[in-house]
Each structure stands twice: as C-alpha cells, then as structure tokens.
Nucleic acid binder design. Structure first.
Lengths: 228, 228
DNA sequence: CGTTCAGTTGAGTTGCTTCAACCCGTGTGG
DNA sequence: CCACACGGGTTGAAGCAACTCAACTGAACG
C-alpha cells in the first residue's frame, strides 16, 4: 500500500478520479489545477518532434506527482499520457502551495523527490548521450526495478511494466526493433526474462548493473528519495 | 551588467571568489555550503561513465545558481567544472533556505528558474534521444544564444562560448570530429560562422530554428525565465 | 476463420565513430 | 630568433551500431 503524507490524504480522497489507459491528461480549463498526483498506475511524461518521434522524459509512478506547467504558467511543456488504467488526483496550484507552506515536512519530502528526479534525469541523459543500446536498456530496467521496489511493487526482482517495446524505445531513445533485439540478447545471456507484455524478471542484478554501468549502492542513494 | 535580487546582493559580495578555468568545484568540507551562484563565467555540470566518457548536463551561466547535492545530502551527483576564469559565490544551505523563506519574490523567481531549467533539459533529452547531429547542434546553439541574450551577452546574433568542439560534443552527445563536420556544414549553408575558439555568429536564426526543429517563440517562453 | 496488433527476425542502409594524418597558432627553451 | 612540441581543429577512410523496411509469427478477438 502507498503511504502518503497525512496532510495530503483528505485532498487526495476528495479529488481523486480514475482515468483510462491511453488518455492524455490536460490541465483544467481554469489553469489553476496543475499538479497531477498518482495513486495507482503509470503516467508517461513525453515530448515529441514535428515528425511524430517521441521521447519519454520520465514515468510518474504511484506516490509521485508531476506538474507539467512551463515557466509562463500557461502552457505545458510535456504531454502526460496514461499508460494503464490509473487513479490520480489533480491538485490546484494554490492549494498545493498552501499545503507546502503549512507542512514543512511535506515540503521537505517533495524537495527530496525533486532532487531524486533530477538525479534520474542526469543518469538517463548520460546514457542517452554516451552509451550503447544495451547499457541504456539495462539502466532503464534497473531504475524501474528500484523505483518499484521502493513502493513494494516488485517481488524478488520480478515486476511488471505497462509498456510495449515501442514505449521502452521512446524512453531509451531506441527503435522498437532494436529494443526487441537487445532484450532477447539479454535473455540469452541469462540476465533477465520477459513474458507477455512486459512481465520482467531480473535474474542477475549485479551482472545487469555491470551492463548498465552503474554502482547499485550509489545509484539507490541518488535516485530513490529517502534511501538512507 | 547582471541584475540580482536585492536580498542576495550582500551575500554575493561577501562570499564571492574568483576561480580558475579548469578547476573542479567541490563542496566545502563542512557540507553546509552547497549552492554555487555564478556572477561571471561559465560552469559545466557533467557526469561521466567509468570509461571516461562525459556528458554535460547543463551549463551554469552568470546569474544562475546550481546545487549539485544529491538526495542524501552528502554526495554530489554531478561534477561542476569551471570553463573559464569565473567569479562565483558559494552560499550555505541554511542561509539559502532562510533567504527563500524571507523573500517570497526570490522564492518565486527561483521556482521559475527551476521550471525553465527543467524545460531545457526536456528539449535536450528529446533531441539526444531522437534527433540527428545537425538538429542537436542547431538546438544547442539556439539555446545558448537565447540564454546569453537574456543576460545581454550577445550582440546581433553573435556571441562567444568558452567551449572547444570536444566540450560541445559532450553537451550534444557527439564526437568532437562530428561536431566539427556538422559546424562546417552549417557554415557552408550560411547559417552560422565560427571563429577561433568558438566565436559564434548566427546569421539566419529562423533557418537555424528549422534545423533545430524548434519554434522560437514557444521555446523562448519555455526556457527563458521571465520571458513574457 | 479472418483480422489485427505486438513482437521477432533477416537484409540492407546510413549516420556517427574511430583512427590516423595533417594543419596551424601558441608557447617554450636553446 | 629559430626549432620544436603541443593542443585543437580539419579532413579522409574504414568500421560498426542502430535504423529502416519487410516478411513472418503468434496471441487476442470478433
């Protein structure tokens, strides 16, 4: 179960709603409700080029929140897509600000979340710029596994991601075809197994970490908020 | 001249120091001074892989500040390198927090800065994942030009960047050799000219924007803090 | 039973990398 | 003042990783 800050509870219950897989989240018309808080399910924050090529910047997992508003407070600089039937709450900006003011511990934990998100982005950018397909995918799997473990959504290195290979490609900057080949290769190496629509099991974390070129310990401290 | 928030002035004068090109900024031993505020010069925030490959995540330009501390408040998740002789101030975390508490307008403008930085990262990630060398470099030049223009460091589309082609490659995820080729091609197309050690002039912004696959208007609103 | 959609696999192409040679401006020491 | 080394930029040639295109499979569904 997801543990949420007590001050948030009431808000989340009041404003929560279920959204269908595939829908795109838009800010409300009044422009004052902007913060999307995920209770269940996954969101993807992506950007796309004119030609339709898409890059996923981050996934928003249960317990995380995302504000897609850009600096002019008018438009959104990303597209938020719902990857599987989800439960989310939409929180008004004013309300959110008030909450942060009133609860310094919430403010603190949100700050930690932000730093962790920044660290994740850095790791991904590094690999996007300088690494092979294998490293990128290995890293992505490790990151997702860690984040899911932190919210008890893994079991012994096994977890589900509501992603097709195309979407994993959008995340790692690869074509779906190449994602496929790379996953199969890792399969053959005994690092992981994948079952239908992305039931993933990591068999040898430390070997996988080598391929991802990460140090598991440091990575955890950097990208998991509140990891000792 | 750089305009800074009045509440910062005193702090900046008190704590400012000059640092030499090439040096690496480390947090102070007491771990309480972490926010680097740049008054003059450029910093580069980078990460590297075991094999030494480096990716620059962002440049820190005059008037911007950067806190490299990771979520555990102990280590830094990036390396901060000084790209040319610079003047910076190092501000203690507690002091910084206090300042933000006391001056809501400063807090606001820092928030805007953060959102703008996030938008920039998104644009870069998109191109890192899905674009050609030409698009990446064109985008990088436009971004730098815009940011420098905002602080009056350009003149008619001409500006200097304290970067070699290797460093531009680290920023765009390309080899220095390919950066060279791409710059020369843009040169031949009449888009830009480059002189010794990166005196860049953009001749045809809108044409360059096409290559970068950006809309100049929206980009400006998204990545320049306080652009109307 | 046919259609659709995601994944898989092969073949051929391409864009970027690596390696290597060369040029040129700058600094340095005899 | 010249000789030389050095670091960055430039260019060519060759290699390779990832892409595209296309065909096939198998599962899900009406």
């Amino acid at each position: 179960m997801l543990k949420t800050h007590s001050a948030l509870q009431e808000l989340l219950v009041r404003d929560k709603r279920t959204v269908d897989k595939g829908s795109i989240l838009k800010s409300e018309a009044d422009e004052s409700r902007e913060r999307f808080y995920v209770l269940e399910g996954w969101l993807a924050a992506s950007k796309s080029l004119q030609d339709g090529e898409q890059q996923t910047l981050d996934f928003v997992l249960p317990g995380e929140s995302y504000d897609p508003t850009s600096a002019d407070y008018r438009t959104s600089f990303v597209q938020l897509e719902v990857l599987c039937d989800a439960v989310i709450a939409i929180i008004g900006r004013a309300e959110w600000e008030r909450l942060l003011q009133d609860h310094s511990d919430l403010q603190y934990s949100e700050k930690i979340n932000e730093i962790a998100a920044q660290a994740r982005h850095s790791e991904r950018m590094l690999r996007l710029g300088k690494s092979s397909a294998e490293t990128r995918i290995a890293y992505a799997l490790i990151e997702l596994c860690m984040r899911l473990t932190a919210i008890n959504l893994t079991e012994d290195g096994a977890f589900q991601v509501p992603l097709g290979q195309k979407q994993l490609g959008d995340f790692t900057g690869l074509s779906s075809v190449h994602v496929c080949r790379t996953l199969r290769r890792m399969n053959r190496l005994g690092l992981i197994t994948t079952q239908d629509h992305m039931d993933i099991t990591i068999h040898d974390v430390s070997k996988l970490a080598e391929h991802a070129e990460v140090d598991l310990g440091t990575l955890r401290k950097e990208i998991i908020p509140g990891a000792a």
